[in-house]
Write a protein that binds this DNA or RNA. Structure first.
Lengths: 366, 366
DNA sequence: GTGAAAGCGCTAACAT
DNA sequence: ATGTTAGCGCTTTCAC
């Protein structure tokens, strides 16, 4: 390719000059609007010149002119985590369906997300599972948060996890468990606080004993935490509890591992449960009783709500107030335009599998 | 917020008018270049007017003027698959380190990727695991492909998987296995063809018998395929092989499940191996002997090579040929500028865990 | 300290 | 069938 190498990328003007045509002809050819308007020979000449220069139309200039499709940014803390990947997938599908472009931002703190928003032409933000305590996003960008406390009047979609967790504790109770452990996540977000509250409440209501431990959300951390938990024995070298309720499927697998290392069998010696229902849950033996969290649906629902806010009414409101100098006074309240029902909850569903069973007899086994 | 609602987004001009200043002052304020140049009062007035109008600077216009940071697009077929997520993560990290922005494209076919490339201002493409047979990307965008046949002179980074697989088969051989099954992926990409070739060659070399089956890359498909494989029994209701080599960890879990359903114990009755070394591999019992595929490293290496091609030399070549009319003649060869060593291979490593053991005695167990 | 003016590369009327 | 022209919204000298 003919490398101009004067440091700047070739423009349609350069192509026009090389091809011996005007710049607008180049534009016509590259937009595909050339059929019937530009001659065969000319088109070929343009394409040829473009190839030789390595010309690529400047997308920024094009968008500045025509106004590109709307873009929404989806922020998740960790795309390797299958749960977030599913949320992203669901949100992305809903966005595309509505004709929106999607950009992904993998970022833990809100400030970095804000930077990404400023750097690109973002029309709205869908933020998943952000740490508590962040301010909303000082920019006036419509946003909805997923799986987190709604920062202001921002709109949120979360799981309604308490009923399923109550049901889960009740299942354990009916199986005969009277003392359980709760392996919690160290992460301090709203959803995990809610899980703790739900488990605590359900136990209290049934008069069940309950001990705690917290762990990082990975296999190694979970194994370690679970090991410590199981070692806190009191009755003849066996733990004081007969079931472990975990905040996440990964934690449950850690418990499996720790139990196994101690010669405890799941579910015979120890019942275990998780939350999430990822692939792991059916890969392990016995398969894990868990609470299904439909991630795709969370993402899709959030995205639909966000888009609904972006497109105020059914049609385009033909009313125009061409006087831009008018005042409105009140700007303190509802900067984002609070719509009805800020804060939707999606049902979580208990999935019963083989990891829960009646507790073993006091007689030591093995 | 004072909603102008004439259909168009407010511009810096609108803000200027409302604030009673000139447009360039608004620009100064919004770039933060205002300190010492614009008065306190004026700044406040500008910010205020902006807030009331809901003004957000147009990123496209800004980039058109200033020339934004370079962007590279990373294309993967499925972001929920943890392997691709890891590749993306590695590539993204390498890109950011070099000051590049990253956009993700989750797309199976190359044409959709091309559309994404055209829609945004993309300077380069990193494409992972694309289906065979696609043309390179007709646009003159520098690209490198990951885990796939390099389409042209495009540059590629792949795993060198054959040595580890040979080592794996050899391990099985030394443990006493003489007849194995190979559970392959249905997906017909270069990497899976190579896996088959490596396994076949290693078996042939050692005079081991080998049967085949193919499966979709998910748990259900794998369970089914593995079930069929195990049912193809010949000697007293037991399969004719004593080990199953799988193209992917997920397939291995399917074999675990199918074996379990038939009362076969892993590794006692059946040795099983995988490829990938995802979380699943250590979650199952016994832990899976597998071939580790460092996804992050694949992504990072590919991205570094791509960026190296984007930045030709150490410094900026001050030489300028201001005559744009000059010809160069040859454009047929090396359109992308083939650099040394198109086609890097990253080592894959055998990880031995508990799922491989000597085959059981002919005497039926259980 | 603030404003006027010249583009960035492209598109879309409107001429020719 | 092709060329001319006027911007899109912003940044950035250079005057005042």
């Amino acid at each position: 390719m003919l490398c101009v190498s004067n440091g700047k990328a070739p423009t349609s003007h350069d192509v026009a000059r090389l091809a011996g045509v005007s710049q607008s002809t180049v534009s016509l050819v590259f937009r595909g609007a050339a059929s019937g308007r530009v001659g065969e020979r000319t088109q070929r000449a343009v394409l040829d010149a473009a190839r030789r220069l390595g010309f690529r139309p400047n997308a920024d200039a094009r968008r500045l002119r025509v106004g590109g499709p709307r873009m929404v940014l989806i922020a998740v803390p960790d795309i390797v985590n299958p749960f977030f990947a599913r949320v992203f997938t669901g949100a992305r599908a809903a966005a595309r369906e509505a004709g929106y472009q999607v950009v992904l931002s993998v970022q833990r703190d809100l400030d970095s997300v804000a930077a990404d928003v400023a750097g690109q032409q973002i029309d709205a933000v869908l933020a998943c599972s952000l740490q508590d305590g962040g301010r909303p996003l000082e920019e006036p960008v419509p946003a909805v948060v997923l799986d987190a406390e709604p920062p202001q009047g921002q709109g949120s979609v979360r799981f309604d996890i308490a009923p399923a967790l109550t049901e889960l504790v009740d299942l354990l109770y009916r199986l005969g468990h009277r003392s359980i452990a709760h392996l919690r996540s160290e992460v301090r977000t709203a959803t995990f606080r809610e899980r703790t509250e739900a488990v605590d409440a359900a136990c209290a209501q049934r008069g069940m004993r309950r001990v705690h431990a917290a762990s990082a959300l990975d296999l190694d951390g979970a194994r370690e935490a679970a090991g410590a938990l199981l070692s806190s024995a009191d009755s003849g070298g066996r733990p004081s509890f007969t079931a472990v309720v975990c905040d996440d499927d990964v934690l449950s697998v850690g418990v499996y591992k720790a139990a196994q290392a101690r010669g405890l069998s799941v579910p015979h010696d120890l019942s275990v449960t998780g939350i999430d229902n990822v692939d792991l849950a059916t890969a392990v033996t016995p398969e894990l009783t868990t609470v299904d969290l439909p991630g795709e649906e969370l993402g899709a629902t959030g995205m639909r709500r966000l888009i609904a806010r972006l497109e105020p009414r059914g049609g385009a409101p033909a009313e125009a107030a061409p006087d831009p100098g008018r005042q409105d006074g009140e700007s303190a309240d509802g900067a984002g335009g609070a719509d009805s029902g800020v804060g939707v909850r999606l049902p979580a569903r208990l999935v019963i599998r083989g990891s829960t069973a009646p507790p073993a007899d006091p007689a030591p086994r093995r």
